[in-house]
Simulated assay, not measured.
Amino acid sequence: MPLTTHTFGPDTGDAAAVLAIHGLTGHGRRWAALAGDQLPDLRLIAPDLLGHGHSPWTPPWSYEDHVDALVAVVDEHIPASARPFVIVGHSFGGALAVRLAHRLGDAVAGLVLLDPAQGLDPSWALEVATDSLAHWDYADADHARSAKRGEGWADIPEALLDKEIDEHLIALANGRVGWRVSAPAAATAWSEMAREALLPPTGLSTVVVVADRVRPPFVGPDFLASCADAESIRVVHADCGHMVPYLEPELTATLIRETLEQV
């Protein structure tokens, strides 16, 4: 089954295309505010990843399976006239963006990686995945809202959190509520993010945004050192938490536009 895909902006052949890949436990509609407020003239294609939102929840959920599904999205939604296009990926979506760029080659004009999560310490990944599964559901929406505020959403505008609650929180069979995400798929993603980090294709214009308030960081020192040795990769530091698209929308939009200008 294909990924459920949300599109924003003009549906015309001359609109520049951006594939937007959300992070772990997210969904494609998280890009709606950025698209509407900052990039209304661009065509944003934003799928729900495997195991997320309204896309299929059945396994497998490896990096390779996600990339296969994303290639199908590109084939359906981005015509030859809109290529090469830019990929923006947040967190787990950043790790997928790099691997998708390797698969698609010249069809990709550049990458904007927002606090990309890959090459994570395996012990830490196990700890976070185990804790996430132990606290997977909530008594009610108020409990879910409080948990979100304590998980990196403390500085996100209330209206965006309200929208997240309305669109992404669902009733569960046990009488509690939870996010519209497969718990096994999420646990698998932590395993994938503990695999070795992968650099973007040689020569591909890439911006890596590091969220400086994240501890421990998702963007590790070894990956940053490798980026420093690549002339085509620029590292930008943002004084914010992990949810860069919500916390730094102007910066995110500027970097996307700058990358598109190189097409």
Rank of each mutant, 00 (worst) to 15 (best):
M1Q: 07
T4K: 13
H6S: 14
T7G: 12
F8H: 09
G9D: 04
G9N: 11
V18C: 09
L24W: 02
L24T: 04
T25Y: 00
R30L: 14
W31H: 05
A33Q: 04
A35L: 08
D37N: 12
Q38E: 15
P40F: 14
D41H: 13
R43K: 09
L50P: 06
H52F: 02
H52P: 03
G53K: 00
T58P: 02
W61F: 07
Y63N: 07
E64V: 00
D65M: 01
D68R: 03
D68T: 11
L70F: 05
V71R: 11
A82V: 00
A82H: 12
F85H: 11
S91W: 03
G93P: 12
G93L: 11
G94P: 10
L96E: 07
A97D: 11
A97K: 06
R99K: 06
L100C: 15
L104V: 04
A107R: 08
L111I: 03
V112M: 05
L113G: 06
P116F: 12
S123D: 15
E127Q: 06
A129P: 01
H135N: 14
W136R: 03
W136T: 05
Y138E: 04
A139H: 14
D140I: 03
H143F: 02
A144S: 09
S146G: 14
A147D: 10
G150W: 01
E151V: 01
W153K: 00
P157N: 07
E158Y: 01
A159P: 00
A159F: 05
K163I: 00
E164W: 02
D166G: 14
G175A: 09
G178T: 01
G178S: 14
P184H: 05
A185S: 12
W190E: 03
A194V: 02
A194S: 15
R195K: 10
E196W: 02
A197S: 13
T202A: 15
T202C: 14
G203R: 06
T206D: 08
V214A: 07
F218V: 04
L224M: 07
S226N: 14
C227K: 03
A228Y: 11
E231H: 12
R234N: 13
V236A: 15
A238F: 02
D239G: 08
D239K: 03
C240W: 00
H242S: 12
H242E: 08
V244P: 12
L251I: 08
Q262G: 15
Q262P: 06
